[in-house]
């Protein structure tokens, strides 16, 4: 799989006082391949949101190189192209909606891309279909629930047919049912459209479903790789900024009793099967 996002020695700093720089991210080097679902985790304030904005070309690194779909984000001539290719969704569902009706909201992005009017209606319809809101075109955006608003934001981005979708904690203001719906939707989008998805989250259950997890700690990349490796590693689990999944917690507990368990059985079904195996072996 070809790489679609590339970071090389990227620093991002802001100037707090005169000549005093405060680094939010330091020396980030990584690659994300096309079609991957990457989850970015870390404590609040570790630089996850800044990372998401750097990915979308909305801000430029202080030093280092960022290539998105082969385009250098620091080249101002590339900005429009990069924004076409990367869609971003933020945490607060309300603060991304500008129009009064749903179809006008989705059309806004299409107008900016100079899509002809005849093609707009079809794109609006298909993007609403993709997020499970068929027939909602004429509805008022102010009547939507938080989860629906966020799905609308995803539809608005999807309609622009981006190659990469970045989501900065899209579900942290939603309840658990809406959160699950959004996650299922993202997995569906990934499998149908083969879009590369970068999801910033603090829910470990979401991270475990990704191809790669990027753990940012103390402004640096502490881990980038298979989520199972991260969540089953005893050393990492003891890191205060990494909160283990409940499956991981129960498996650690059973392991502490002296039983042999696979710490990689993090998904619900796998964890249940591990526990059943232990109990079965005891019956014997």
């Amino acid at each position: 799989m070809e790489k679609i996002i590339e970071f090389k020695n990227v620093d991002y700093a802001v100037e707090e006082q005169k000549n005093k720089k405060h680094f939010i991210l330091k020396n980030i080097t990584l690659e994300i391949k096309k079609g991957e679902l990457v989850c970015v985790i870390g404590l609040n304030g570790c630089g996850k949101s800044t990372f998401a904005k750097l990915l979308s070309g909305l801000i430029s690194p202080t030093s280092g190189l960022i290539n998105i779909c082969g385009l250098n984000t620091q080249n101002p001539d590339h900005s429009y192209q990069i924004r076409k290719k990367v869609g971003i969704i933020f945490q607060n569902p309300d603060n991304q909606i500008i129009a009064s009706t749903i179809e006008e909201e989705i059309a806004f992005g299409l107008e900016n891309l100079c899509i002809p009017r005849e093609k707009m209606k079809a794109r609006i319809k298909s993007s609403l279909c993709a997020v499970g809101m068929e027939g909602f075109e004429k509805k008022l955006t102010s009547t939507l629930s938080g989860g629906q608003k966020q799905r609308l934001n995803i539809a608005s981005v999807l309609a622009m047919q981006p190659e990469i979708i970045v989501l900065d904690e899209p579900t942290s203001m939603l309840d658990s049912v809406s959160r699950k719906n959004i996650l299922d939707l993202l997995l569906k989008i990934k499998s149908i459209h083969k879009t590369t998805i970068v999801l910033v989250t603090h829910f470990m259950e979401e991270a475990v479903l990704s191809n790669k997890v990027l753990f940012i700690e103390d402004r640096k990349v502490n881990f980038l790789g298979n989520p199972y490796e991260l969540f089953s590693d005893e050393v990492f689990l003891k890191t205060p900024s990494l909160t283990p999944m409940q499956s991981s917690q129960i498996l650690s507990f059973i392991k502490s009793l002296g039983y042999k368990v696979s710490m990689k059985a993090l998904k619900t079904k796998d964890c249940a099967n591990e526990i059943i195996k232990i109990l079965e072996n005891h019956k014997k």
């Binding site: 409940q246 129960i250 507990f253 619900t268 079904k269 249940a272 526990i275 109990l279």
Partner: peptide
């Protein structure tokens, strides 16, 4: 929406083990 631990223990219960209907916390699961 039940927590992951609730879903895990519910699957274990489905295999016939004597567990309450809903195990709501990790402590209780332990």
């Amino acid at each position: 929406n039940p927590a992951q631990i609730t879903q895990v223990m519910s699957l274990v219960k489905a295999e016939g083990y004597d567990i309450p209907e809903s195990v709501l916390t990790v402590n209780q699961a332990q």
